[in-house]
């Protein structure tokens, strides 16, 4: 399948992104179909995820952050479901692909930079000068700040990508030992079971880290230092 000259084939990654989209929409919309004052378990889970991201955004950005809540929430749920779907055997982890995480991080980077300039105009450049820096330090500090700012999308995307890739690779390598070791394969099996628990934790943790860093970047753009 292609669009013009570019290849847009429906791959494993596309399938699992679609599954994540459908699952999240179903989770959110079916969970709220009763919209009761006293929620049932499903609605509780929906509200829990809502509250979790809302608190995260409020604690880091404050009240001005409410506008960006839908985006931050979508980001969190998309990454979380991508990570968790990857834990299902024979499935595919689209968050372990650098292009996916980089695209998300790059959108955030561009969006936050545009936001900063829209909010502060050219004053936004003062973001690269930490307050209270003595003048002779400027030639040293400004390049450092600029590089650290520009490396944000890379660190953000590589963190998620590397965590997902390393975790899943480790699981597969150790799982490979189970059959070859025969009876003693029970040891790597136990290890794989423990690691699966750890990987589920990491799936949540990395979605959380990605989201809270996004919130921090939005906060930086809105309030500078």
């Amino acid at each position: 399948m292609s669009l013009g000259d570019t290849d847009v084939s429906f791959t494993n990654a596309s399938l699992f992104m679609t599954i994540a989209m459908v699952l999240i929409s179903a989770f959110m919309i079916l969970g709220m179909r009763r919209s009761a004052i006293i929620p049932n378990r499903w609605q509780c889970a929906v509200e829990l995820s809502y509250e979790f991201v809302a608190n995260l955004l409020r604690d880091t950005v404050g009240q001005e952050g409410r506008k960006y809540f839908p985006f931050v929430f979508t980001l969190f749920m998309f990454i979380l479901f991508g990570n968790l779907l990857g834990m299902v055997p024979y499935s595919f982890t689209f968050t372990s692909h650098i292009i996916v995480t980089f695209a998300l991080a790059f959108i955030i980077f561009v969006g936050v930079t545009v936001l900063g300039f829209a909010k502060h105009g050219l004053h936004f450049f003062s973001f690269f000068v930490p307050p209270g820096t003595p003048l002779p330090m400027y030639p040293l500090l400004i390049p450092i700040e600029v590089i650290s700012y520009l490396s944000r999308p890379i660190s953000l995307s590589v963190r998620l990508f590397a965590n997902m890739l390393a975790g899943h690779t480790l699981l597969k390598v150790i799982a490979g030992f189970v059959a070859t070791l025969g009876f003693f394969g029970i040891l790597p099996l136990a290890f794989v079971v423990a690691l699966t628990g750890l990987e589920i934790l990491i799936a949540f943790l990395q979605a959380y880290v990605f989201t809270i860093l996004t919130c921090l970047y939005i906060n930086d753009a809105l309030h500078m230092h």
């Binding site: 791959t11 992104m17 679609t18 809502y50 929430f73 979508t74 749920m77 998300l104």
Partner: peptide
């Protein structure tokens, strides 16, 4: 596979954003 992944990322993330923004949240 970058082009296809970017295309499908946009094609899933943007509708998901719209659904959550306008309908679910």
């Amino acid at each position: 596979v970058f082009s296809s992944q970017l295309f499908w990322l946009a094609l899933t993330f943007i509708p998901l954003y719209l659904i959550l923004w306008k309908a679910a949240l």
